[in-house]
């Protein structure tokens, strides 16, 4: 019998053959892991979500992200929502590693529950969970994890409306803890493909304050179409959130890219350089 407690109840090599460590770069054995004292940190994302895009308008924020979770080039899960409501007037959009995203959602759920306990109808003064509270919390968490050299492999966009001031809120933070705010923000490919379109609509806070909800939604829809054209890790099906000062959050998790034109593809043969 093997007297090492760590081996008890585990599949034995004699029965199953040696564990294939090639799978997800797992340690070659538990003993090996323990002996070296190595801690496993994320060094690259596994199942991933692509771009999140968002823009401010005169009365709030519009944000979108597709519903796809990819495993490399495989379309692994086709119904994963990546926009999440937190509190009453905040949406968090998450790209990058999906398991890290789900860990973040657990934390945010816990945060909301704790907050509700302390701010129910029996409390002396009720404070609503504001977008900037959630953002500050997440930004500190992201920076803390990067400093521990154990990052959450994500880029987050927090958008919403401050329920006290009515001020639209839009800010970004990533796995390094780098944060910024801008009238339009996009993660990943969106930063290259969507941002030029969105900055054409509003390049400054002043211009964003003149933008209507309809214009903002159209801008985001156009961005999602362009991303579907050119980002191979994107999907046609996506979620769209509108966070409005007056009407609150409107969330649709089943929007599809519209008005596509693939006419240009009709005559393409091979790599596009051949004439047939």
């Amino acid at each position: 019998m093997n007297h090492d407690p760590y081996s008890w109840g585990r599949p034995t090599d004699s029965m199953y053959g040696q564990y294939n460590s090639q799978i997800a770069n797992a340690p070659t054995s538990l003993e090996g892991n323990m002996a070296s004292g190595a801690n496993q940190h994320t060094t690259s994302p596994i199942v991933t979500g692509t771009s999140v895009v968002a823009i401010k308008y005169n009365n709030g924020v519009v944000m979108a992200a597709d519903n796809l979770a990819s495993y490399g080039s495989l379309l692994r899960f086709q119904g994963i929502e990546r926009l999440h409501k937190v509190g009453k007037t905040t949406m968090v959009g998450i790209s990058g590693d999906v398991s890290d995203m789900q860990y973040l959602l657990e934390i945010l759920d816990e945060l909301t529950i704790e907050h509700n306990y302390d701010n129910d109808e029996y409390s002396d003064n009720v404070d609503e969970l504001q977008p900037d509270y959630i953002f500050t919390y997440l930004a500190n968490l992201m920076y803390h994890r990067r400093t521990k050299m154990n990052p959450l492999w994500n880029a987050l966009i927090v958008s919403g409306v401050n329920s006290k001031t009515g001020e639209p809120f839009l800010q970004y933070v990533n796995l390094l803890g780098v944060k910024y705010s801008s009238p339009s923000i996009a993660t990943g490919f969106g930063a290259h493909l969507a941002i030029p379109l969105l900055r054409k609509l509003a390049d400054s806070e002043e211009e964003a304050q003149k933008l209507t909800k309809e214009q903002a939604i159209q801008g985001i829809k156009d961005s999602m179409r362009v991303l579907f054209y050119r980002d191979t890790r994107s999907s046609k099906n996506y979620s769209l959130a509108v966070i409005d000062k007056d009407s609150g959050i409107t969330y649709d998790n089943d929007v599809n890219v519209e008005d596509m034109s693939w006419k240009f593809a009709k005559d393409i043969r091979g790599y596009g350089t051949q004439k047939v």
Binding site: T28, A35, S36, T43, P151
Partner: peptide
């Protein structure tokens, strides 16, 4: 013989810095 994890060179390391100009 059990292969020891951590003996092989680490393939990829997380870079905790970026240059924001």
């Amino acid at each position: 013989m059990v292969a020891q994890y951590g003996k092989e060179p680490i393939q990829h390391q997380f870079n905790p810095y970026s240059d924001n100009g």
